[in-house]
């Protein structure tokens, strides 16, 4: 497959902390515009791998590119060309909605004109024009989520990393959020997502399951279910991740 079709290419990636191998020789590609589910039990090495992919940590061995930039040499460029959103950290609660947008726009190097344009577009798309001067901390969780998702896309990255974006929200909000993910993927943005909800694994184009630092399975949900003769991705996950030998 041609290079331009892959947003992530990882070969033999390894990360050790002392004599502990957190990520153990993993290789995979993420195609442009796909929704890629990155699953694994707690302690399987997901966070360590994601930190490398986001340019926040260097591997011990292996090579790779993210958004076309080298994970060893171009970490700053990676940071500038990806989006990142996590439920744990998203918005500054004591800045207003508008101020949050402005802050992140500025961090990503957009000029005032661009930020103003993006702000009004984003507010009207989210139906949040009325809320623009409210503190982000006062918004309902579902709105916070949608807003931080859109803010993570403010610099139009080719790929966005979503780290457990839907934890703790009510079932309808969780599904509405996935509809936003679909809309974004349809426009060509690649989605890299982690989740503990196994029904959400079904919504991904392809899913990888990490076990003990390695990628134990990687395929479409359909093929994974077929291979493990499982009814649901929950069954697949339990079969694959249940073989883990190490704890966190």
């Amino acid at each position: 497959m041609g290079k331009e079709l892959n947003v992530i290419e990882i070969r033999n990636l390894t990360k050790k902390f002392g004599d502990f191998t957190a990520v153990d020789n993993i290789s995979f590609d993420v195609h442009r515009g796909e929704i890629f589910g990155f699953l694994g039990a707690n302690g399987a090495g997901k966070t360590t791998a994601m930190r490398i992919l986001c340019g926040l940590s260097r591997p011990t061995a292996g090579t790779g590119t993210v958004a076309g930039y080298d994970i060893w040499k171009e970490q700053e460029k990676i940071k500038r060309h990806i989006g990142y959103m996590s439920q744990k950290f998203s918005l500054y609660p004591d800045l207003t909605v508008k101020e949050n947008i402005r802050l992140f726009g500025g961090i990503y190097g957009l000029d005032d004109r661009e930020i103003n344009g993006k702000t009004s577009k984003m507010l009207s798309m989210l139906g949040m024009v009325q809320e623009k001067d409210k503190f982000a901390g006062e918004l309902p969780l579902g709105w916070k989520q949608k807003l931080s998702f859109c803010i993570a896309l403010i610099h139009e990255p080719r790929i966005i990393f979503l780290d457990e974006p839907t934890g703790g929200v009510d079932p309808e909000t969780r599904r509405r959020f996935w509809e936003l993910i679909y809309d974004t993927a349809e426009k060509g943005t690649t989605i890299f997502v982690t989740t503990h909800y196994m029904d959400e694994a079904e919504y991904c184009d392809r899913v990888s399951i990490m076990v003990d630092g390695r990628i134990a399975a990687l395929d479409t949900p359909e093929k994974l279910k077929c291979r493990f003769t499982a009814e649901t991705m929950d069954d697949v996950f339990r079969t694959v991740a249940g073989k883990a030998e190490r704890e966190e």
Binding site: G40, A41, N42, E164, G167, H196, F237, R238, A244
Partner: peptide
């Protein structure tokens, strides 16, 4: 069980 993976939740 918040933030705990599917296997450990079980």
């Amino acid at each position: 069980t918040t933030g705990v993976d599917a296997v450990s939740r079980k």
